[in-house]
Amino acid sequence: MKDATKQTPAEGIDALPGDLMMWILIVSELLVFGAGLAAFMGVRLTDPAGFSEAQTHLNATTAGINTVVLVTSGWLAALAVQASEMGNILRTRLFLAAASILGVVFLVIKGAEYADKSAQGIDFETHSFFLFYYMLTGFHAMHVIAGIVILALVSWKVTPRNTEVGAAFWHMVDLVWVLLFPIMYLL
């Protein structure tokens, strides 16, 4: 089976790197976040001034730092996959641990951001901007938590396939953030 795939390039579903079920999940998640961000942009049309005003309450700098944290974490996860493919389990675990620690850093910064909002008395009913803000970033943060759990499970049972599947989830979290961040914080 393995030899056959080496000789002829895989086609269709088999060409997807990693696990089909993970791709189903990734596509589903992207559809959900994509729809959420599109809805945000749509509702923004109804009140551009209110949305701009609300956005001034966000801290784009810390969120920008979070972007760097997350893409770096994604890089470490990608390196873990390479280490795993070379059969170096210790190296894989170290990269996965580093990726997870950056995930925790992301959550800490996010938590500080939420604490700041809450200190300003802002909740999801303050303005529809904040409804989307809490809903989408909150959903995303939950996926960061889930991703950390998945990376922990992967480093418990390191195989090239497990690492690839776990890292794929982590990259999806990354991907969502690089779209969410500019749309919500910078536009």
Binding site: I26, W75, A77, A78, D174, L175, V178
Partner: peptide, 12 residues
């Protein structure tokens, strides 16, 4: 950025 993540990180 999204394109880079899809192509390189996710291996497409």
């Amino acid at each position: 950025k999204a394109q880079v993540i899809l192509r390189v990180y996710l291996g497409l």
